[in-house]
Design a protein around this nucleic acid. Structure first.
Lengths: 335, 335
DNA sequence: GTGAAAGCGCTAACAA
DNA sequence: TTGTTAGCGCTTTCAC
């Protein structure tokens, strides 16, 4: 990489002259600016980002810590973050916590040493179970702002972007009750997570309000094979006439299982699930879907962080929690 | 963030003493080392990474440029890269090219200014179609090594990690012929990509070798709805008794479509597709799958890059192309 | 055993 | 209009 020094030498001027010329400083003569720029162009000069970062005490880089990049929802959020960051001239450094508290702490520590200006993260499963928040607080105390999304630690003071999980399943369940469904099952492989719990509560509330019916819940563990579990469950409870899935897979699987058991979807049984467009294509009929607008969540998180980073005036302002509303996209798996 | 300067001041020693003490230099007295380390611990001192990078002319960061993070295969490779990099003390900066040549060039430019030590990338679709390679060559000339994976530019001299695409579909097709299938259809939504073409050629070769049968290909465009296309195709060609899918979705969809058309899988029709474990769960029976070992691809790419980065001895060595063999995982959708 | 000073590449206050 | 200098945080050579 060519440096200011080399340009200066070749042009027989000082380093600062070159620097100023490239930054269109008023101080420098037109002719000099031209000469400098031409040579810089020729050598394809680009200012060294590391040196700039050191000087300006600012890296224009956002640290993103994600529990699981194979999760379609999370990678979609990452997509949204990247796009928004890129738009504002920020890069992102991605770490994957693998749902582990230890890795999450490590990543936070590692990137907090000047590599990034702030963080966007989704709390890992282990962190939520153990309810640890010290590492977040410490990072914030060090002056690095955090924006949490989806799974958040309520006791940490920072910006947050969440989904209306409770409401989403409450409304979806109501919807099924309005279809005159009587035995609505709830399936989830995320009952350890805050969002999983909220979704289950929304379902429960709607069911209990109905007076006549009662909840029926299938919790799928990470080590289970989802398809086998759902087959067994549906064989056992033959009276199920509707399913709500809290995760992105079991909805589609439930449709396929129902079909293979000879049921007609949606005549005999309705299914609603959290999912994305691409996955909802994996069943016939297509899954009626609770869309979480993952990209918007990512974009919102990035905006909130960047706004805070660019608030150089110094005046701190209150932390916000933005709720991105889900929407119910009706496809063929409901009446 | 606390700096060496601050520690030095508080301890009434020089900055260099503190630096040496923290690095366990022989030059420094035991007692001093102890005092320094205690204070550093107390203040949770961590060396500033940006300063280190500037000094050492090395960032310990890998730039990753991926065409599409919502593609399950690609995000799995990313996972593999991240894990391997993390293991060796490297961070990754991720850019998403969105299959655009322009964005790919931009990302390369942006990160080449001292932000990263080298690149791992998968060539974007537009780049492959236009067959542009200048930006890669220039980056390499600047001294930043590149490792390409999956979709590679053959005319660029660099390390590569690829899949045995041709062989995979050749063998899979053979497999179906051995099952005595007569009309084997090939479905793809990636016929623009180098890997898509290779996969189609492998299929063609096997079919043509069989003498008796002829190829039948369905190309699905990005703007098409895959499910609708496949339904129409299978209704039109009722004699299809086997399907090979070159992308990760159409295999699963084909099973669901076949079932909905009253066919028994695998009795009446066999299906094989490129896919991952999680998606192969989205049909009943489960899809017989060509596994690409995405994580290994990522890990291999990271290893190759890191090896080159750490080859400080200077002697350049030949570029390698590593082929990660696919494997055929038999599930219920074949005999 | 400890400290001073140079230098990585850049910007900016100040001097000329 | 141009150049000198200091400094961002760190390592390392050389001097004391």
């Amino acid at each position: 990489m060519v440096t200011l020094k080399q340009l200066a030498k070749e042009l027989n001027v000082s380093i600062s002259t070159v620097s100023k010329a490239l930054n269109n400083s008023e101080e420098i003569g037109k002719e000099t600016i031209k000469r400098v720029k031409e040579l810089a162009e020729l050598y394809n000069y680009k200012p060294n980002k590391v040196a700039l970062s050191l000087k300006q005490n600012r890296t224009n880089t956002i640290g993103v810590i994600i529990p699981d990049i194979l999760n379609h929802f999370l990678s979609k959020v990452l997509f949204g973050i990247e796009r928004e960051a890129s738009l504002h001239g920020y890069n992102i450094m991605t770490c994957i916590s693998n749902e582990s508290l230890e890795k999450e702490k490590e990543s936070l520590q590692l990137l907090a040493n000047g590599s990034v200006d702030g963080f966007i993260l989704c709390v890992s499963e282990e962190t939520q179970i153990k309810n640890e928040i010290e590492h977040f607080k410490q990072t914030i105390k060090q002056g690095l702002p955090i924006v949490m999304f989806d799974r958040v630690a309520h006791d940490v003071l920072c910006d947050k972007v969440i989904v209306d999980d409770f409401d989403a399943t409450y409304r979806a369940t109501k919807n099924l009750l309005d279809e005159n469904r009587k035995q609505i099952a709830f399936m989830s492989n995320i009952d350890d997570l805050s969002v999983g719990k909220l979704r289950e509560r929304g379902y429960n509330k709607a069911i209990l309000e109905s007076q006549d019916y009662k909840p029926l819940v299938l919790n799928i563990k990470k080590e289970d094979n989802a398809q086998d579990k759902i087959i067994a469950f549906m064989k056992k409870h033959k009276n199920i006439d509707a399913v709500i899935s809290a995760d992105s897979a079991s909805g589609v699987i439930a449709i396929n299982v129902a079909t293979s058991l000879g049921l007609k979807v949606p005549k005999d049984i309705s299914v609603i699930g959290f999912s994305s467009q691409s996955v909802s294509n994996h069943s016939i009929p297509r899954l009626t879907t609770i869309r979480q607008h993952a990209k918007e969540i990512g974009a919102n998180a990035a905006q909130m962080l960047i706004k805070r980073l660019q608030n150089i005036t110094g005046e701190p302002y209150d932390f916000k929690t933005k709720i991105v509303k889900t929407s119910l996209v009706k496809n063929g798996s409901t009446l």
